[in-house]
Amino acid sequence: MNPFLGYALSGVLLIGIGLYGAIVYGHLLRKIIALNVMSGGIFLVFIALARRAPGVADPVPHAMVITGIVVAVCASAVALVLSVRVAVETGQAALPGDHEDRA
């Protein structure tokens, strides 16, 4: 049996969970975690799609996902440093208008 569909649907759920968290939670670290869950889901869809033909896996999506992982960690690193600076300036680890919810 080809498991690609199951993994791809699992990826879709990850995207949904991440999107929800990124919108709803105010705490900056939670937002960043949620965004990374979301991109993890996208990578899962991508890699699952590369594994549809019996026998061979398509290396092009693999290369693209490696690029995506590196880009995601770079963006997250910048976001985390910015978050700490924001907390130093404003005294809370959330954007104005949001609240830190549960830390």
Binding site: Y20, R52, D58
Partner: peptide
Amino acid sequence: SGLVLIAVAGLTAAVVTLPHEAAGLA
């Protein structure tokens, strides 16, 4: 939640209708 549900439903529909055997650029 509403937004997420719409997104998940759309994506599910897309993923399910993708061709089930494709070699891509392999």
